[in-house]
Amino acid sequence: MTETPSREHRPEPLWAQAAELISEQITRDGLTPGSRLPTERDLCARFGISRVTLRKALGHLLDRGLVTSSHGRGWFVATPSTVREWPNDLESFTTTARRKGLVARSEVLEQLVRPATLDEADALAVPAGTPLLVLERVRFLGDVRMALDHAVLPAALAPGLADVDFTAASLFEELTARGVVLDRSETAIESRIAGEALAAKLHLSAGEPILLLDQTIYDADNRPILLSTVEYSGDRYRLRTTFRPR
């Protein structure tokens, strides 16, 4: 059945009416973040509108954070903006999700102990060859792949971490439980494009934008204890901060 926007009964322009119908369809059909919308051709036929009008409607929903697009793959229900905006604090992914009433989980891709490379040893101020725990995870909110998280830390810092099930456990919480104080983080943030390997892990298309957070985390004695690289899908992360004049 075609749900056609009507100028006769409503004062809004056709694109605004179409945007409202699409939003209502997302709610009515119970579409979750990451769900694919019907093709543009199907939406045009369903609502009886032109592709130009449809794209203006979808652009409006994109600006509102309700949908997102992926080149060559179509339109998807977006992760809510309350999920995408993270605090300007040193807080774990799991803790932030829990505080927002969401469920975080991980797919563990790598969890092993190996010798530190020269660069890692220099960054962590430990001798080359020091045993390091390497933990790489795809981080999820519900069924949505949010980020690829790669962490490296001295294995002796918190014995037993190599045996923890990190599909649900939080690295920060496990460290804190073992008496490790996470005091501050030095973080560099930059935009990049997803290569084929990262795109496959996050279910993106190669060339899509990502946001990379490169962190060195220090303890209360100002010692570097954790190296973390987190690569977020560009439409699933937003960091808000405050700048003040000196």
Rank of each mutant, 00 (worst) to 15 (best):
T176S: 12
T95V: 01
R114E: 10
L54F: 11
S35F: 14
Y218W: 12
L31P: 05
A197Q: 04
P209L: 13
P115K: 13
L132T: 04
T242R: 15
L43E: 04
L135T: 00
I225S: 03
F76S: 10
R105C: 13
L141S: 09
R98V: 06
E231P: 09
P80G: 05
T4H: 14
N88L: 14
E136M: 11
E12N: 08
S205E: 01
G207I: 01
P115W: 10
R36K: 15
F243V: 08
G234Y: 07
A97Q: 06
V113Y: 06
V126Y: 09
T94R: 14
I210F: 01
T130L: 06
S81R: 11
K100L: 11
T216P: 11
R114K: 15
G142E: 04
R98H: 07
R51H: 13
F172S: 05
D119H: 14
I26V: 07
S233Y: 05
L198K: 09
F172R: 07
F140G: 07
E190I: 03
C44E: 12
M1T: 02
R46W: 00
R246Q: 14
W15T: 06
L182P: 04
N88S: 15
Q17R: 08
F76C: 04
R105Y: 01
P154E: 07
T82A: 14
L66P: 02
A200F: 00
R114V: 11
P224D: 07
V230E: 11
V67L: 10
R73H: 09
L133S: 12
P154R: 08
G207H: 04
T95C: 03
A177V: 01
V77I: 09
E190F: 14
A151P: 05
I193P: 03
L153I: 00
C44T: 06
R223V: 00
T94L: 06
L161S: 03
L141K: 01
V77D: 07
Q25V: 06
L62W: 12
L90H: 09
S106V: 01
Y232N: 08
V181W: 02
G142S: 04
A125T: 11
L118G: 08
E208M: 03
R98W: 14
R244D: 05
A147N: 08
L157C: 08
I217W: 00
H71I: 00
E196S: 13
D214A: 09
I22P: 03
F166Q: 07
A169R: 14
I193E: 12
L66D: 02
T95D: 06
R178C: 05
D122I: 13
L226V: 01
T167F: 02
V152K: 10
S81A: 13
G72D: 02
D89N: 11
A168W: 14
G179M: 12
A57P: 04
A156H: 12
L21V: 00
